[in-house]
Amino acid sequence: MNETDMIVSVILWLLAILLAPFFAAVILKVKAFFGGKKGPPLLIHYYTLIKLFQKGSVYSTSTTFMFKLGPVVSLCTAAMALMFLPVAGYRPVLSFNGDVIFILYLLGLGRFFTIAAAMDTASPFEGMGAAREAYFSIICEATLFMILILFFKLTGDLSLAAYLSGSGTLGLWQTAGSPLLFVVIAFFIVLLSENSRVPVDDPATHLELTMIHEVMVLDHSGPDFGFIELGAFCKLFFYSAIVSRLIAPFNPGHPVLNGCLFIAVLLSVYAAVGVTESVMARYKMDKVPKFILISFVLAFFATIITLEFLR
């Protein structure tokens, strides 16, 4: 690949990180619309981040260096995951055979540090959140690997770029067809649970006992908390971009058109998250694993069905 391509990829990567908070605000807008409210401005997350970055921090006396390392690592892993993501079908900054496995384990690294930072505070609530985070992500990971097997069977490749950039996604639909719909649903469920959205977790709640991710970051403040928020936006962007690429695999040809289509579909994915949050209530804690298990079952189902077709 030549240098201009690389520069474009890097610019797209930076844009993805910078725009991630904007897209996340769309969810708030949609929820406000359903509630009959005006809702916060679309740039609300930027204001929040700037406010957080200007503050100082309060650290618990129980904490160690892990508490400070947690936000940094979770932000970096999410940002690094975006490096492998073909934004709008454009080739990503990094791509190699097996990079999907690398990304999944990299996000695992981020999770490890988030959990460790939560355990550092000696708070019973944060421990509870950490245990749930560790639990639910196990099933999510199984789902993602199931989807990966299907994609590998379809394309013979193990990189995100092969699935999502150029005409790769269209190829997926042509060979697999309708079962891919189940994959999209499964992936959406994983999106909801990995990014702690309703019905798995409620990012807006103020009852610590029922929370998963929010409760783990109770003690973080100031720039540290800003890092965590930014990391969460990046992670949400990562999953949403994959879903949107799967929904609309078309390449209009012209780069500008391409970008517009991508943004439009991305917005609709965020809106779908917002709609889900508006129309559904949070599940009881013991129902959550069942919900996530459905995503695994769907992915498994899609794989078996597709293989029947392929024969």
Binding site: G56, S57, V58, T61, A122, L218
Partner: peptide, 19 residues
Amino acid sequence: ARVCLYSGKTITRSGTWGC
């Protein structure tokens, strides 16, 4: 970036927030 953001800020230590 973290070092930059924290330069000159007040950092306090207190107990863990027990809700």
